[in-house]
Nucleic acid binder design. Structure first.
Lengths: 219, 219
DNA sequence: CGAAAGTGTGACCGGGTAGTCATTTTTATT
DNA sequence: AATAAAAATGACTACCCGGTCACACTTTCG
């Protein structure tokens, strides 16, 4: 939570500051990200940052919360009940995630990098909390399917949930490793993560669904 | 590759140095790992390290090569041809990996941490090379099964290979997240990663195989 | 034994960081 | 316009790091 000083700032300046730091944290680890560098880019004094935020972690958490909130606005409208099976729902989450990416490239890049941020000791604790929330979310999804008799019940729900989470991160990672997306480059060019790659993204999603379906579904 | 000076050292001293650095790199990122701290622990001068190795990266690569070589001695004896199906082979890889872990805890911890080392910019390039080798290895495994008609052929081999790789890392990660193993704690106590947890390890392996089998197998 | 070669040393260098705070500048209020 | 309050500033502190190198110590060998 930023200090009052930050909230009182003109929206335009808030945005500039927010975006400069999103950009930094999107290409660097928490520990590697340098406040000194960002303020140089922004043309403001380092002291100002500490007038706006308690410390580096406070600034970082603000960005996490803000980005998660923005993304939620896109995905929260989707309801599992409106889909015949889990996989149609799952696929649509990517469809709407793509929309989020197009319209909020910096937040998207930031969240994208967050996923790969496991390390950085000063933040590990906080990161693990976030991660376990995410995983619990996936476990809930799996549990719902099991209860409705759509997912198999001969494997622990925890395993189903975790593997589902892994399925999601695999899609992202494979796109990156295979060179279809290149976040570092995109952010430099000011482009979204998946710019012009919607077909490729949805194709990989479809491949993974085709692959994973028999693992999760009953029979 | 260490300098001659290091090779000429008494085996006992080599071991002390190797193990002190394995321990450091097993709990820290490459960039966070501090040579200054390790030499303090070892009671030798920092200059000595630079008499033994070109620089930090040279030292690190030596440890990687050494650890990979040690682990290979355990897993390379296993041949796919000796198993009725892929999953029996896959399971045995963990069985022998467990053996490696028990007998070479520090190397095991080091390799374990390496997997989660994605970040650290000074090493990213090198890490990506290693990773793509590993993934190519998994793709080869998948390709072999596809050719022999045991794995499905309606999904790209790349996807099969990558997901297989993810299957492996998921097992490790879930054990850690669920608290069954705690590398940071184990290394402090001087214990192997999977100390006393063989049954739990093999149970998770079995769960994941049960889960993944229908995803990969034909029909 | 004595000299040369090899090995060990740690103060030091240049570079980086997050965070502080006395001071100045800007803004709001009277 | 004068005063008070709020905000911006940047030099500074305290702390890291990897890597160097002139020097000291040990070993080798003629």
């Amino acid at each position: 939570m930023p200090k009052e000083t930050f909230i009182k700032l003109k929206e335009e300046k808030q945005k500039q500051i927010r975006e400069a730091f999103l950009r930094e944290f999107a290409i660097k680890t928490y520990d590697e990200a340098s406040i000194s560098m960002v303020v140089k880019q922004l043309g403001i004094a380092k002291g100002s940052v500490y007038q706006y935020f308690e410390d580096k972690l406070d600034l970082f958490m603000y960005l996490v919360n803000e980005s998660v909130a923005v993304k939620s606005k896109y995905t929260a409208v989707l309801k599992r009940e409106n889909y015949p099976d889990f996989w149609a729902y799952f696929s649509d989450l990517y469809e709407y995630g793509f929309q989020f990416d197009q319209e909020n490239p910096l937040n998207s890049h930031f969240l994208h990098n967050l996923t790969q941020n496991l390390n950085s000791p000063s933040i590990k604790h906080f990161y693990n909390e976030l991660l376990s929330q995410v995983i619990t979310g996936f476990e809930k999804l799996a549990e719902y399917e099991v209860e409705n008799g759509l997912f198999r019940s001969d494997v622990p729900v925890k395993t189903l949930g975790f593997f589902l989470y892994k399925l999601g991160s695999s899609i992202q990672e494979q796109l990156e490793i295979s060179g279809i997306i290149n976040p570092k480059e995109s952010i430099q060019k000011g482009l979204p993560v998946y710019f012009g790659k919607k077909d490729e993204l949805m194709q990989v999603v479809a491949d993974y669904i085709k692959l994973a379906k028999p693992a999760f579904n009953k029979n």
